[in-house]
Design a protein around this nucleic acid. Sequence first.
DNA 1: CGTACGTTTGATCTTTCTCAATAATGGTGG
DNA 2: CCACCATTATTGAGAAAGATCAAACGTACG
Lengths: 272, 272
Amino acid sequence: MSDFPRPQLSAAASGTSDRHPLTYLIDNLELRSRLSDADRRRILTLPYDLHARPPASYLLRDGEEPMRCGVLVSGFAYRVKLTGEGERQILAILVPGDAVDFQSLFLDRADHSVQMLTHGEVAFVPRTELQTLARTNEAIGQAIIIKVMAEASIFREWTLNVGRRDARRALAHLLCEIAVRLGHIGLAKPDRFQLPLTQADLADALGLTPVHVNRTLMSLEADGLINRRIRMISFPDWQRLCEFAEFEPDYLHLGRQERSVTFEGAEFLTRL
Amino acid sequence: MSDFPRPQLSAAASGTSDRHPLTYLIDNLELRSRLSDADRRRILTLPYDLHARPPASYLLRDGEEPMRCGVLVSGFAYRVKLTGEGERQILAILVPGDAVDFQSLFLDRADHSVQMLTHGEVAFVPRTELQTLARTNEAIGQAIIIKVMAEASIFREWTLNVGRRDARRALAHLLCEIAVRLGHIGLAKPDRFQLPLTQADLADALGLTPVHVNRTLMSLEADGLINRRIRMISFPDWQRLCEFAEFEPDYLHLGRQERSVTFEGAEFLTRL
DNA sequence: CGTACGTTTGATCTTTCTCAATAATGGTGG
DNA sequence: CCACCATTATTGAGAAAGATCAAACGTACG
């Protein structure tokens, strides 16, 4: 909370290896929940189709009835909504291991779209299989709920970023978030990472204009808060950047949510 | 979708009657889920404390470990986050029947605060009781998940509103949302309602300045999109307002989420 | 009837947008 | 490996939406 966690390398591999695709989902759930060996094996029995997807392709369309749930295996994607005028607002970034449709697993239709940001691979699991799994396996069901709740928390911070931080602070905050999330899956070095978004994407994420994002990036660089070489962002002073951005990663709810383990009938927790 | 639902009066009462407080929660869940008589009775067995709360009092504090879950029985509340500079961003409005802590029912600590907007009453239920209920009763558990997901959908639309709509459109959209949600619980007439927010609150909800909200309200009124008498907002032409605001209430996910009923082992849904 | 809070108004300033052009970059086919 | 094309990034000048500051006005309520 007070000392800012650097983006850290973890064991989760990065390349488009030949690991079972759903191990990425397992790793993702285990960022916040504890699963048993049996739970992990159960997830690996889910049927899936693995597909390569090009940039900008849709993984989910606004208004559609979701029939399957995609799990991002490699590459990046984003959640997006459009205004009537066709202006985009990017709502979230998905990284490898993230599921596309947990957000609407029990809703009749999608209220936003998900599109690929880069080239990547997606494992599609039938929605009914996941629903059944979520309801028959308590640990997995809870892990999914925790994931949904953590994502909702990220939406809230995103709204604060868009609504109440100026361009410099908001952009710095977004870079911090992406750096930490990539670090947790081994896709960022402690002091640098490859930004998967163009400046136009950043603009749509922050409710700004590409031109202004460009100027803001240059302004952050001029102040020594970041360095850029092409699309590689590096942090000369991570802590200073976090302080400037007001970045406090609690809202990511990373780390196991241990307190949520209820001891049936036990009241002692309410006395803590 | 094509014809805009007017805010509608429902059977859910409004006054601070002597109904069992948790019937408000039941009505709230039944906006989107089907519950059996047994489920309803089960909810009514939850222990609770009913408290009157003054405006601005906290129902949940950012960073706190939630020990209990409040259910708003009367009055209004809002979810809020602060920047490091102390600027507020209101993230959501809670109306009678809404639960305060579903958003963090399985998370270790709250990532935002909830405060009363007006005077009101809140029924506090021990968090462990709710967790247990959510896990032991499938229908209620699913109803809670659906509620969490629907709220997340509202967060996303909120972000679009703040990030990509100009002040007039965003304000009109917010008024539409509040009108429809109040209508569904019988707190709005078809063409008018009592706005529970001050102009400063509206500003914090939209990422604007109170001065600008004031001017924007006057501008909407000058265009005949709304009328105001004190805090009473009325709609001379609801459909025109909806079109102007790009308000399409699908994102509220009101109406029973029937498709989410899985027939165990049945694959036929994937063929729809 | 006075105090606190909310609303309205005016003048001025800043951030961010718009439009338009130019320069890099990256990938592709030859 | 090079030439070419499409994207992406950068720059400049001018315009606009929204912010800021300060004050006056209403209204509600103890």
